[in-house]
Design a binder for these strands. Structure first.
Lengths: 142, 142
DNA sequence: CTTGAACCTACAGTCGCTGTAGATCCTATA
DNA sequence: TATAGGATCTACAGCGACTGTAGGTTCAAG
């Protein structure tokens, strides 16, 4: 039987995070000692490891919830699992593309600035005037 | 004199966001009509446009605050402006690198799965077992 | 003068945690 | 067996950068 602290250490999770996962129903309510402390077994350890590894790969908690549900029906087609992973891949690719655009724009902005004084700074100029931007379709949130 | 709604439309910002910027001191408290509605001039329009464009380039509100402060001293060296932009560039590059790692891992995971049933799904297998991961140093937050 | 769109304040919710306060529990050592 | 102190408990606030809601008021066109 593992205490919450041991479980945390084994999975590289913070104790509060585990309690948070329990709160939102991602981890089950574990057994308790007579004094009220949580005690976990290997099932919970594996589940938490799955959650953490999926998080490391960028899956949202909602997507992880779905994957956990799917993995509970081993006889079903894994097409749905594939779809969740594909969606995550597309999201990652989209974010990369967007950041690539930002990178180019930032680099250009920085390269162009050879000024000494703030008054002549190309960086501030570009930030002030959207029209000087090469890429028109930049949107926040990358 | 512009109403908050007009200002919002001109800059592609939501009305609530403008009020939020005012609340956190990024936008100044504007003049008001006798009825208490906000009215803006071109100074505020320019400032908001600067903020939005900087946001589009991924700058944090804190970084934008700094850039706005710097742009108020036109005679100063623009080295600090450069530093803020450089830092942002590095952050963007770091995020791209991390997402690239994720992309490769996701792609590999998906490619390896030729199973029909969830029970044999490589995707779930990889998610369950960190050891199957190529890249050891993946950390959340990308 | 009426209508209704736009505005106002104040506050809750988003995501995925993280940190805090103050109380209680568990376990190792004396 | 007593005690010390690290671990755990609950409950709640806070992060960043907004977004949405409720319930009321104001403005401008017709």
């Amino acid at each position: 039987m593992l205490s919450i602290g041991t479980l945390a250490k084994r999975t590289g999770t913070k104790v509060q995070t585990i309690r948070y996962y329990e709160q939102i129903g991602l981890m089950p309510e574990p057994g308790r000692t007579t004094g009220g402390q949580r005690r976990y077994g290997t099932v919970e350890l594996d589940r938490l490891a799955f959650i953490r590894h999926s998080r490391e790969l960028g899956f949202s908690l909602e997507a992880i919830r779905e994957l956990l549900d799917l993995s509970d029906s081993p006889e079903r087609s894994c097409a749905q699992v594939d779809a969740v992973a594909q969606k995550q891949l597309h999201e990652v690719e989209a974010r990369i593309a967007r950041l690539e655009t930002l990178r180019v724009e930032l680099q250009r902005m920085i390269n162009e600035c050879n000024a000494d004084r703030v008054a002549d700074c190309r960086i501030l100029e570009v930030l002030r005037d959207h029209e000087e931007c090469l890429s028109d379709h930049i949107r926040p949130g990358g």
